[in-house]
Amino acid sequence: MALISTDTLTKRYGPVTAVSELSVDIEPGVIGLIGANGAGKSTLIKILLGLVPATSGSATVLGLDVASDGAQIRSRVGYMPEHDCLPPDVSATEFVVHMARMSGLARTAARERTADTLRHVGLYEERYRPIGSYSTGMKQRVKLAQSLVHDPTLVLLDEPTNGLDPAGRDDMLGLIRRIGSEFGISVLVASHLLGELERVCDHVVVIDGGRLLRSSSTADVTAASALVAVEVDDRTDELAAALRSAGLTVALVGHVLEVELRDDTTYDVVRDHVVGLGVGLVRMEQRRHRMSEIFTAAGAGIV
């Protein structure tokens, strides 16, 4: 069963089209939803929660229709908003217990699940202190905990690494990976930062201007497009021209040539031309396309 499925989903706010004829099928796992600010990520999440009606088209989450089964979806899905949503005068424990009860857990179950969940997101002694005294990283953990406390089948995380320093970012990404692998909860994580998502996601959905740019597994995205970086000590331009005439795709990035890797013979072609020009080979290494390049290329292709 598809985790999330949309069919020509469209949402317009007056003249502004936030989501445009989006058709995508997503299998369970950790899914990255990538797009620039204003690409329609948050709108899509609200539609999937059944909180914003689509203008046209349809969508299902966990096999439930967002238009008619919103309440059922919301009892099995967790949501972590992008913005601050924590009152400063209560402790993390009190707050998460309250939100657990608002998800339909009885008092005792809410307490137990809160203790478990806060431990899993990495909040220990500080969970009895008022949230107002927390660092940004700790607040993000509380927001994550409230989305997980009722043990959902799927969590929707809107920009969970916002405002975090690099270490906090790594911790949060590690947590997201664990939610998918250890907890067995599917994750849809929206972000405009592409680099961080390729580390944790099984699958990426790229949207821009509300339209689907691509939907594919992370392995496909990064593996199918390997590169060889070649750096020589002189006559870089001549080498680039020679390789192009040999039928290879070459891009000059700074003083490094990035050559599309077709198969193993590509290495031989590069070596032969370097020797032919009689220049010194400083470096030749295999690289992967980063998602950002694909995103830019795909975006440029559409625009």
Binding site: L49, L51, A71, Q72, R74, S75, V77, G78, Y79, P81, H83, D84, C85, L86, P87, P88, D89, M99, M102, S103, G104, Q146
Partner: peptide
């Protein structure tokens, strides 16, 4: 006021409560 001011409302609305 607390739920409104600190934007807790989305957390309620993303749950089964209407």
């Amino acid at each position: 006021s607390r739920d409104l001011r600190f934007r807790v409302m989305p957390l309620y609305f993303s749950r089964p409560l209407e």
